[in-house]
């Protein structure tokens, strides 16, 4: 075990998979000479060369489209979209092509494709560069959407994604890259589509993922001082959505708070709450609470931006609300 950052974990996963499999290559904006705008692919260009670390024009539709085509020829491309906000320029290729080609052609097409991208606000980048629209992509059958919240999960899930024969949107979080955590030294993969209990507890179930896991863990520490033990379920992937650990936990605590960074309307909270009500209605002791981003475009001003984003105190308050 080594204590490394989320960035290093992702970088190692990519590096190791590229070393093991010559069909894995990277393409995207500034992934090569620059070394990646989040420095994830720093050193890759010098080691693997321009054939396997391809700098592209700023043309998101074609980055994803070309990755789809290359995947159809049997390669395992890892396309990088600098941020998820730019994925909108590639929307057709992500949701209309990658998610549908296999089905539409009766199973003839196989797309071993990973699209890595970066989500999340909180860095004063303004409304167009700060979104957390992860859930939009999870709406489409045919695509898998993975969003790890810890370095260990990031490495194991990315390796699984690269080895998978399905198209996967792999969402990293912009403000998690410096976060450190224990990561096994050996080669390991974490199966996609499995939620995980990140902290056991008996009183309230918090369902969350990605950056909001960090905030939820802080909230749990505060609450523990007051004798409230929350159990935190990390979804880790939004599609497939693994509800088993959530339902198991809920049947024990009978109370839930769902925490996501994106907007509340039509969000992860809406989906998870609906499923709890559908599948565990008899266990409900209090209305399920949702903690999410305020319904505004995210402002530049730091104070306003932080007002819009979910905070630890919001989670603490919501937990007390359901108790």
């Amino acid at each position: 075990m080594a204590r490394i950052t989320y960035r290093e974990a992702i970088s190692k996963a990519l590096w190791e998979e590229m070393e093991q499999d010559p069909s894995v290559f990277i393409l995207g904006e500034e992934v090569g000479v620059w070394g990646g705008t989040y420095a994830v692919t720093k050193g890759f260009y010098d080691h693997f060369g321009p054939k396997r670390v391809m700098d592209t024009p700023i043309a998101e539709a074609t980055i994803v489209g070309a990755a789809i085509g290359a995947a159809l020829t049997g390669l395992r491309p890892v396309a990088e979209l600098m941020t998820i906000n730019f994925a909108f320029a590639a929307m057709d290729h992500i949701v209309n092509q990658a998610a549908k080609l296999r089905y539409m052609f009766g199973g003839q097409f196989t797309l071993p494709l990973v699209i890595r991208t970066v989500s999340g606000g909180g860095r004063q980048l303004g409304a167009t560069h700060s979104q957390t629209p992860d859930v939009i992509f999870a709406h489409f059958p045919g695509l898998k959407v993975v969003a790890p919240g810890t370095p260990e999960d990031a490495k194991g899930l990315l390796k699984a994604a690269i080895r998978s024969d399905d198209p996967i949107l792999f969402i990293e979080h912009a403000t998690l890259y410096q976060t450190r955590g224990e990561v096994p030294d050996e080669d390991y993969v974490i199966p996609i589509g499995k939620s995980k209990i990140q902290r056991p507890g008996r009183d309230v179930t918090i369902v969350t993922y990605s950056k909001m896991l960090e905030l939820s863990l802080k909230a749990a520490d505060q609450l523990a001082k007051e004798g409230i033990e929350v159990e935190i379920v990390d979804l880790r992937s939004l599609r497939p959505l693994d509800m088993q650990p959530v339902l198991q936990s809920f049947k024990k605590t009978n109370r839930a708070v769902i925490v996501e960074e994106g907007w509340r309307s039509y969000g992860v909270g809406s989906e998870v709450a609906a499923r709890i009500y559908e599948e565990a209605f008899d266990y409900v002791d209090a209305p399920i609470q949702r903690v999410a981003q305020k319904e505004t475009p995210l402002p530049y001003n730091r104070t306003l931006e932080q007002m819009a984003l979910p905070q630890v105190e919001d989670i603490v308050r919501a937990v007390k609300e359901v108790l």
Partner: peptide, 25 residues
């Protein structure tokens, strides 16, 4: 034969990728 694509123009980037795959290999 790789389709048959119904979104106007969307298969052109995919075609570039097919060619990239052949070039790579």
């Amino acid at each position: 034969f790789w389709g048959g694509h119904a979104i106007v123009g969307a298969h052109l980037p995919i075609a570039a990728g097919l060619a990239l795959g052949d070039q790579y290999q």
